[in-house]
Design a protein around this nucleic acid. Structure first.
Lengths: 155, 155
DNA sequence: CTACTTGCAAATATTTTGCATGCCA
DNA sequence: TGGCATGCAAAATATTTGCAAGTAG
């Protein structure tokens, strides 16, 4: 039985197990991602990593993000801004549900976890139903509510 | 009480009511969108419109999509491909829920409407809860299940 | 008429790729 | 040491913008 949340060491182990190399850019990028509790874009990650480890280049950030998403330790999101954002996956195997509130005016993203247990049950039932009826193997799901936040409503 | 689904005429009326002009490019783009039941990207819309009305340019397509999304007759989506896709909104005022199954391998998008009524109720309850607790004014929501489709599982 | 729209080309923004060099295991 | 990784620059994509010319109302 796997832990609920991934640690930096879990990820480094996973990288090794997959026959990939643990390098400074990879560690740096993971540090930044683990330190942040927000969805980060590639250039945000780049500027933070590059400040700490000046050798690291933008192309490596992109390549690393793709690779980490492929091995399941990162999740990629898009919120209508025209660029992707990333976050450490909750786990490589278990639940990966991402429920957010997005402001279409300022692109603030609020993750909410105060959903009722029936939302969870409902999504679970649905996932099983869809896997069966459509022959999909489902890995994760995303629930996004789009609207205008309190601050933007005032202006 | 408004109709459930938007017609081309509804949209043209809305454009006029908003003080905007009804032009050939705008009509052409709307024709294409109404004829398709899939999510279309800007360049897909462009090539179809341009074939029918050779004068229409790509920049106009982009500008029109932004404008139509702003007045609420189009909805913009992103499925992790790195580009946006658009669809006629279900209505300018009522329910705008979009539930899909996305293949992360081939980017096939399946809209499903065979969700149980409790999924609908659940989302509705949640929406109201979130509006209250976070002060958002919510316009629409998106539910996306990501996985691998039957065809891609074979390869 | 007049101001909203358009087409085209140029500018941005984001992401990907080629290739010689670097460095982890 | 061998081959995966990296950095840089260039390329590929996607989207936006400036501006003169067109046209709907």
């Amino acid at each position: 039985m796997m832990k609920d949340t991934l640690s930096l060491d879990d990820v480094l182990n996973k990288i090794s197990e997959d026959g990939l190399r643990i390098t400074l850019p990879r560690k740096g990028i993971l540090e930044i991602l683990f330190e942040s509790d927000e969805y980060l874009s590639a250039d945000e990650i780049y500027s933070r990593v590059h400040k700490r480890y000046p050798g690291v280049g933008l192309a490596t950030v992109y390549r690393t993000l793709i690779l980490l998403a492929e091995i399941g330790v990162l999740t990629k999101f898009e919120f209508g801004e025209g660029k992707a954002r990333y976050e450490i996956a909750e786990s490589t195997t278990g639940e990966n549900h991402h429920h957010v509130l997005v402001c279409t005016s300022c692109f603030k993203v609020i993750k909410y976890s105060d959903f009722t247990s029936d939302e969870r049950d409902c999504m679970k039932r649905n996932e099983q139903h869809l896997e069966k009826t459509h022959g999909f193997s489902i890995n994760r799901h995303v629930v996004q509510f789009y609207g205008v936040c309190r601050d933007c409503q005032r202006s």
